Amino acid sequence: MRQIKKGWRLKGEEGMQFAADVVEAYKTASIRRICEETGRSYGAIHRLLSTSGATMRPRGYHRPATAASADAS
C-alpha cells in the first residue's frame, strides 16, 4: 500500500482506487496497521471504510483460529 503525504487529498479516480485498496487491506489487516502503511490518521481510514460500505469488525476483534493454524501448533 502506498504512503500518502500529510495534507494531500485524493480525488477522482486516484481517491477511488485508494479507497478500494484500503477496503481490500482491511480484510486481513487492522485499521491501525493500514494507518502505519499509508501515513493516514485512524479517523481518516475509519471514515473511508465506513463511507465505502466495508463491514466493520467490533472493537478488540480476534480472528478465530483456522484449521491450518490449529494444525501448526
Rank of each mutant, 00 (worst) to 15 (best):
M1W: 00
Q3A: 15
Q3V: 09
I4Y: 06
I4M: 07
K6F: 09
G7E: 01
G7M: 04
G7W: 14
G7K: 07
W8E: 06
R9H: 13
R9G: 11
L10N: 05
K11A: 04
K11L: 02
G12K: 05
G12H: 11
G12N: 06
E13P: 09
E13K: 01
G15C: 01
G15Y: 07
G15K: 08
M16E: 02
M16L: 01
Q17I: 11
Q17G: 14
F18K: 08
F18Q: 10
A19V: 00
A20E: 05
D21E: 15
D21K: 03
D21G: 13
V22W: 02
V22M: 13
V22N: 03
E24Y: 00
E24Q: 03
E24N: 02
E24S: 02
E24V: 01
A25Y: 15
Y26T: 00
Y26E: 02
T28E: 05
A29K: 11
S30T: 13
S30D: 13
S30G: 07
I31S: 01
I31D: 03
R33D: 13
R33T: 07
R33K: 10
R33G: 09
I34F: 05
C35W: 10
C35E: 05
E36W: 12
E36P: 13
E37N: 14
E37Y: 15
T38H: 05
T38V: 13
T38A: 09
T38G: 12
T38K: 15
T38E: 07
T38N: 15
T38R: 13
G39W: 14
G39F: 14
G39S: 15
R40C: 06
S41F: 08
S41V: 11
S41C: 03
S41W: 00
S41G: 02
G43H: 00
A44Q: 15
A44H: 11
I45H: 04
I45M: 10
I45W: 07
I45V: 10
H46S: 06
H46R: 11
R47V: 09
L48D: 00
L48F: 08
L48S: 00
S50L: 12
S50I: 02
T51I: 06
T51V: 08
T51M: 03
T51W: 14
T51F: 10
S52M: 14
S52F: 09
S52P: 03
G53L: 10
A54L: 13
A54W: 10
T55H: 15
M56C: 10
R57L: 10
R57I: 05
P58C: 04
P58V: 03
P58E: 05
R59D: 00
R59N: 00
G60K: 00
Y61Q: 07
Y61M: 03
Y61E: 01
H62N: 15
H62W: 12
R63D: 14
R63S: 09
A65C: 02
A65T: 00
A65E: 01
A65V: 04
T66F: 10
T66K: 07
A68L: 09
S69Q: 10
S69G: 11
S69H: 03
A70T: 12
A70C: 05
A70N: 06
A70I: 07
D71Y: 09
D71N: 08
D71Q: 14
A72C: 08
S73G: 10
S73M: 12
S73K: 08
